[in-house]
Computed example of a mutant assay.
Amino acid sequence: MNRTTSPRPVWRKSPYSSNNGGDCVEIAGGATGVVSVRDSKMVTGPVLEIPSPSWAGFIRSAK
């Protein structure tokens, strides 16, 4: 993915997460067919890009 021309993702985390620096991940979905996942404490760190169908399967299994 060419990050210089892609729109900036809108990151979000669970409303159950606090802003006290706890362990949390953030996700961003986009029109690219992937869900991006990052560590909320390392916002400039690496990002996992997971195909949307795989992410949906993960969420179904986690519930």
Rank of each mutant, 00 (worst) to 15 (best):
A56Y: 03
M42D: 14
I27M: 06
I50V: 12
S61G: 09
K13Q: 12
T44V: 10
P7T: 07
G22D: 13
R38V: 06
G29A: 13
G30R: 04
S52H: 03
T32G: 05
P46T: 15
Y16V: 06
A28K: 09
R38N: 08
R3V: 11
M42A: 12
C24F: 07
N2W: 07
S18D: 15
W11K: 04
V47Q: 02
I27A: 03
N20F: 12
D23S: 15
S17P: 01
I27C: 06
M1Q: 06
W55Q: 04
L48T: 10
T5N: 00
T44P: 02
P7Y: 05
W55D: 03
M1S: 05
L48F: 06
E49Y: 12
A56D: 04
S6D: 11
T44H: 15
G57M: 07
V47E: 03
R38Q: 06
V43T: 15
W55T: 04
K63I: 12
K63P: 00
V34S: 13
S17F: 09
I50D: 01
V43G: 11
N19M: 09
V35I: 13
V37H: 01
A31H: 07
S52V: 13
A56K: 06
V35N: 05
G45R: 13
D39S: 06
G21Q: 03
P51K: 00
V35P: 01
R12G: 08
S40P: 02
L48R: 00
T5M: 01
P51F: 02
L48V: 13
V34D: 06
G30M: 01
A31D: 10
T44G: 08
C24H: 01
T5D: 03
P46D: 11
Y16R: 09
S61T: 06
T4E: 04
P7Q: 10
S6Y: 15
I50S: 00
A56I: 05
P53V: 08
G29W: 09
G22C: 05
P7I: 11
S61V: 03
V10M: 07
E49I: 10
R8V: 10
S54E: 02
A28R: 14
S6P: 00
T5G: 02
P9A: 12
R12C: 07
M42P: 02
S54A: 12
R60D: 15
A56H: 10
R12V: 11
N20M: 11
T5K: 01
P7M: 14
A31T: 11
W11N: 04
W11E: 03
N20I: 14
A31Q: 04
R38L: 10
A62E: 00
R60M: 15
T5S: 08
S61K: 09
N2D: 14
I27G: 00
V10Q: 14
P51T: 00
S17I: 09
I50C: 01
N19F: 08
S14G: 04
A31I: 13
P9L: 12
E49V: 13
M42T: 14
G29I: 08
V35R: 03
P7N: 05
S18F: 13
R3H: 02
A56Q: 02
V34T: 12
G30H: 01
C24N: 02
P46L: 15
S18M: 15
S6A: 14
P53C: 11
K13R: 11
F58N: 01
M42K: 13
G45K: 11
P46E: 12
V35F: 04
C24T: 04
G33N: 04
R60P: 03
S18H: 11
G30P: 00
I50G: 04
T32N: 09
F58Q: 05
V43M: 07
R3Q: 10
P15Y: 05
